[in-house]
Amino acid sequence: MKHTLRDASGVDHVPAGGTVRIVSLVPSLTELLFALGLGPQIVGRTGFCTAPAEAVRDLPKVGGTKDVNLDRLRALAPTHVVVNIDENTRETVEAMRAFVPHIVVTHPCAPEDNFALYALLGSIFGRQSQAAALGDALRAALDEVARTAWPVRQVIYCIWQDPWMTVSRDTYISRMLALVNWQTWPASDADLAACGGGNCVRPPAPGTRYPAFRWQGDVVQATDLILLSTEPYRFTEQHCDALERQTGTPVALIDGAMVSWYGSRAIEGVRALAAFARAWS
């Protein structure tokens, strides 16, 4: 039987009891905690946790996702801190263990992983019915997308420039895009290795999930569409116009939160991605 109370680090949690004080260090998880009805128990967030806007406005900030102010965090006396393997550093998490009783580690790597995420947080914090409702809504969204026979498109999803950075296929973003049959470059470490000979920003390490690269002819020629995400880098339509002139390949601006945010946002994200894909089909 699957352990619904086992987090991504392999730690088994128990249902929270007594006074519960939650700090979230991940924007999408902050939004999810509110969607589960846990607003009164949330006592802190990062400066990047901006949704839901009205609800988080007066919550204390404890720095950023990767530069957490441990003194501020300690002062909030949290019973639980919710973190993510990609978003937060191991050093921060280990330092928190000295004064935080319960650290919940998450790591969704595909849209379907949200079911386990909902169940984990719902079970820990006594919000099983809310978690089940979110799961039903996500299942409906995924089933709706699966009913369409999406044509295969080769895409490059850019998350940064200077250096240019993209996503590998073992990321949540790539697996979201795969729902509409958009296949991201690079497909494998071999693709990155083939980008050598001085063409890459740096030699790619095996298993690199967010590799840096430079634009080169064979990569561009095999691409149907270049996607510039609105986060974490704030790409704009001006960036799209400039890159399209440079590469001769169609370039589109895409809402990064809809593609990369797991949690409750994934439900809206799946539907938004389908609408976006139809517009570019």
Rank of each mutant, 00 (worst) to 15 (best):
A131S: 05
R153C: 00
D136F: 13
P151V: 00
T166P: 09
I124D: 08
R147F: 03
Y118D: 03
Y118K: 02
P151H: 02
Y172S: 03
E144I: 04
V145A: 15
A137C: 09
F115P: 03
L177S: 11
L134P: 06
A178K: 13
A133F: 05
I173M: 12
L121F: 10
S174P: 02
D170V: 12
Y172Q: 01
A187S: 13
R169D: 14
G126Y: 02
T166I: 10
A146L: 00
A140C: 05
A146D: 06
D113N: 09
A141V: 05
S129A: 15
A133H: 11
T148G: 06
D136L: 15
L142Y: 04
F125W: 05
Q130M: 07
L179F: 05
C158G: 14
W160I: 09
F115Y: 13
W164F: 14
L134E: 07
A132C: 13
E144V: 05
Q154P: 02
T148D: 10
Q154K: 14
Y157I: 08
A146W: 00
L117Q: 07
I159T: 01
Q128W: 08
W164Y: 14
Y118I: 02
L138D: 01
S174W: 00
R169C: 12
G122C: 11
E144A: 14
Q130P: 00
P186W: 01
Y172N: 02
L121N: 08
R139A: 15
S123H: 13
I173G: 00
F125L: 09
L179P: 04
P111N: 10
A116T: 14
D170K: 13
F115M: 08
A187Y: 10
W185L: 12
A132T: 15
A140N: 07
Q183D: 10
W185P: 12
Y172R: 02
T171G: 07
W160G: 10
L179E: 04
M165D: 03
F115S: 06
I159C: 00
R139V: 12
Y118M: 03
I159H: 00
S123L: 11
M165P: 04
W182A: 10
R147P: 04
A137N: 12
Q154G: 07
W185Q: 11
I124P: 07
A110M: 09
L138H: 00
D113Q: 01
S188Y: 05
A119S: 13
G135T: 05
Y157R: 07
L121A: 10
L142G: 05
S123E: 14
R127H: 00
V180N: 04
P151Y: 03
A149T: 14
T171E: 06
M165C: 09
Q183Y: 01
D143V: 02
A110Y: 07
Q154V: 09
A178P: 03
